[in-house]
Nucleic acid binder design. Structure first.
Length: 513
RNA sequence: GACCGGUUCGUCUAGGGGUCUAGGACACCGCCCUUUCACGGCGGCAACACGGGUUCAAAUCCCGUACCGGUUACCA
């Protein structure tokens, strides 16, 4: 039987990074086994499900490269089948009608009420429901009379559910620890565990890989499989991802740091974030960090998945560490080492979205046009510039922020950089425009091309004349020309910016104002 | 409370009885390179939760304790 797995999120918010990792592991498992990866939207809780969430989930999966192999299944579309299944179990005596009136609770107190009930002493038996053994005649009569009821699974008195978990190993749970779970609400609405089992059967799912928070649900679902007389699929549970405090990383408490779209919007590369996520709670057992999607598919195994939860480390109020250090490093590593040809389109998208993109960057048009300009095509210039500046960047956003001065005349100056490299040395206010004049005279004819070697000679001479250090001039120039204190070799910057732009910016007094 | 699970450097992790004076990565610190730098190179700091066993030998196996997490809904 060929492998079929599914990712089954509920559309009650954006795509969670933990859920994304579960989707990734399902995908890797399926690909490795030559199986299918499916997506099912669990929208049975109509009140909380939104179309916007569904779209956001699908967008997120698409971005990170986990597209399903078959059309998306919406659980709500199968509600009639779920109901029919519940009724069938009722008819077969494997479920019963519970006429206990539904308790109405405010949303906030639900969790608390559960805990309070659970603490009752002595503990209530899971089988003490008075309707569990109601005669069929009376049950039918009350139902016919219009009395509302929920349908509960009639969990056997003694025995235990057990299964071999792909990650956690052998698992068992005594029936006594599992309540007669509700299959169908009194309003006729099918509940999660029933819906999941029905759909997994219908979709012919062979392996269920999901979060550890479903471990107890698995025992309940096995009970449903048994009642239905269907062999359950294989199960594997993934450890949860925790926040720095040690609590489950949740949308409600931790905010947008858990949303996949946050990373896309912050300039993360899908490949890098995927790589990072794969290594959170899984290891191939080798000393290596960088894996392409193909390599992940090849190396993945459930045996390599941890049994302990990993902490997703970040500092909410520290801009430098707004998300996990390793994720940021991974992204930077991809940016500076990936093939330039793969990076260029991503930079193009970033520049387009910030109105910095120029069509010339893809054209074989001469830069400049005057005789003294270096003969270089725009396309070449763009590629070289990206290649030059990528090495100190962390995200794609840096191309439009730190690197803005390379693509626009309208860029900001980093105040600390201005203070340190310009204002601290007042002479620079005269020196830099003088250097511009020097550039104009030294590079006036074709005999002395404006290139790194010649620029270095001119700047050195100039520095000696002024009796200052090379670093003073270079750092000042860098701040004035790029707005920031860090970047590639200043000689490269001069050359990349070109003679005209360099001169113009050296003369500018704007940074001092 | 009950049931289930977990516990190796700050974080992600390697490790299935001897090759562990515990390896790698991120972060941090230092040095080098350099005109600067968040690139690069070299180096450093830093961990087997605790207590009992078993064994010639335990981070690795067993038991207990502590701590942490998950679940315990007519939510998913």
């Amino acid at each position: 039987m060929s492998v079929r797995v599914r990712f089954a999120p509920s559309p009650t918010g954006y795509l969670h990074v933990g859920a994304t990792r579960a989707a990734l592991f399902n995908y890797l498992f399926a690909r490795q086994k030559g199986g299918k990866f499916l997506l099912r939207i669990e929208d049975t809780d109509l009140a909380r499900s939104t179309e916007e969430s569904t779209r956001s989930i699908i967008d997120g999966l698409t971005w990170i490269g986990l597209e399903p192999d078959e059309p998306v299944v919406f659980q709500s579309a199968n509600a009639d089948k779920h109901r029919a299944t519940a009724v069938r179990l009722l008819d077969e005596g494997k479920a019963y009608r519970d006429f206990t009136p539904k308790e109405e609770k405010g949303d906030g107190s639900v969790k608390q009420a559960i805990v309070e009930r659970a603490r009752e002493k002595p503990a209530r038996s899971m089988r003490d429901n008075p309707y569990r053994d109601l005669s069929i005649e009376e049950s039918d009569a009350r139902a016919t009379a219009g009395e509302p009821f929920a349908i509960r699974l009639k969990v056997p008195e003694s025995g235990k559910t057990q299964f071999e978990d792909g990650v956690f190993g052998h698992q068992e749970r005594d029936y006594a620890d599992t309540e007669d779970l509700v299959l169908l609400r009194s309003d006729g609405h099918p509940l999660y565990n029933l819906a999941v089992v029905c759909d997994d059967i219908e979709m012919r799912i062979t392996d269920v890989i999901r979060g550890q928070d479903h471990l107890t649900n698995t025992h309940k679902q096995i009970l449903i499989y048994e009642a239905l007389g269907v062999a359950p699929p294989n199960f594997a549970h993934l450890p949860l991802i925790l926040a720095p405090g040690g609590k489950k990383l949740s949308k409600r408490i931790h905010g947008e740091i858990v949303s996949l779209t946050t990373y896309r919007d912050a300039g993360f590369l899908a490949a890098a974030f995927r790589n990072f996520l794969a290594l959170l709670g899984w290891s191939a057992g080798e000393e290596r960090e960088i894996y392409s999607m193909d390599e992940l598919v090849e190396k993945f195994s459930l045996a390599g998945v941890h049994r302990s939860s990993a902490i997703f480390n970040y500092e909410p109020n520290n801009p430098k560490r707004w998300t996990d250090d390793k994720a940021i490093w991974m992204n930077a590593e991809y940016i500076r080492t990936m093939p330039l040809s793969e990076l260029l389109p991503l930079v193009k998208t970033e520049l387009k979205s910030t109105k910095l993109w120029r069509e010339e960057y893809e054209e074989d048009l001469l830069v400049g046009g005057s005789a003294d300009a270096p003969s270089i095509m725009w396309r070449q210039w763009f590629e070289r510039t990206v290649d030059l500046i990528r090495h100190r960047f962390f995200t794609l956003k840096d191309f439009s922020q730190q690197g803005r001065a390379y693509f626009s005349e309208d860029y900001d100056f980093d105040p600390p950089a201005v203070d340190k490299n310009l204002k601290k040395i007042p002479d620079l206010k005269q020196w830099l425009p003088e250097l511009a004049d020097r550039f104009e005279s030294e590079f006036a004819d074709v005999g002395s091309p404006y290139n790194e070697q010649n620029i270095e000679a001119v700047v050195k001479t100039f520095t000696e004349e002024k009796g200052t250090k090379l670093g003073v001039i270079m750092n000042g120039a860098r701040t004035l020309l790029t707005g920031v204190a860090v970047g590639p070799s200043m000689l490269s910057v001069f050359e990349t910016l070109g003679k005209e732009r360099s001169i113009q910016r050296l003369k500018s007094q704007i940074a001092w104002s």
